[in-house]
């Protein structure tokens, strides 16, 4: 299953990048795509669901998550721009490093969560170690949004809903 999906993705990439549709270029594309697929078929979808239906449902949930994430990115940029351009930003800045334990189990979910933390207002992931996230927060408020209350924060619930079937 993962072999076929990897092959299709790579071949689409080849067609877009080459932009030629004659037999020679398509043949070369099939050859090189096959080589890449043979080398890396277990890389792109390691630990993902094997059934096609489940995978499609996961992709659908991921697209909904992307919409929400895009709105968060816009908010993050407005936040950081106002911090940078306000004349007295050194008084509002209060950087700190926080550490919290995540409920996410799989590597891929943790990767998506880490990148999402980096893209959303006021927080940047420093490292993940043994299920603990080390996060640098630039203001007190953004630190509280992520790990202030009891249990996982809003974004962590989203990621758990997308990849591990948790409740949103």
């Amino acid at each position: 299953m993962s072999v076929i999906i990897t092959f299709c993705v790579m071949f689409a990439l080849w067609i877009v990048m080459s932009g030629k549709f004659d037999l020679f270029h398509l043949g070369m594309g099939v050859l090189s795509t096959g080589l890449v697929t043979w080398l890396s078929h277990d890389l792109l979808f390691s630990g993902r669901p094997r059934k096609l239906g489940k995978l499609l449902a996961e992709i659908g949930r991921f697209l909904r998550y992307m919409l929400w994430l895009f709105w968060q990115i816009v908010l993050a940029n407005i936040h950081i721009a106002s911090l940078a351009l306000s004349p007295r930003s050194n008084e509002t800045l209060d950087p700190r490093i926080i550490k919290f334990k995540t409920v996410l189990k799989t590597d891929f979910a943790q990767f998506v969560f880490a990148n999402s933390i980096t893209l959303t207002p006021g927080t940047t992931t420093i490292r993940i170690q043994d299920g603990f996230f080390y996060v640098h927060a630039i203001t007190v408020q953004s630190a509280g949004d992520l790990a202030g209350g009891e249990g996982p924060g809003e974004m962590e619930r989203w990621v758990a809903w997308v990849f591990e079937g948790g409740k949103r």
């Binding site: 990115i73 816009v74 993050a76 950081i80 940078a84 800045l93 950087p95 893209l119 640098h136 630039i138």
Partner: peptide
Amino acid sequence: FPDFYSRVHAAGKGDTL
């Protein structure tokens, strides 16, 4: 921004969008 970590905030977010 005063230190390295805050600069990373400015760089990592503003750059993407």
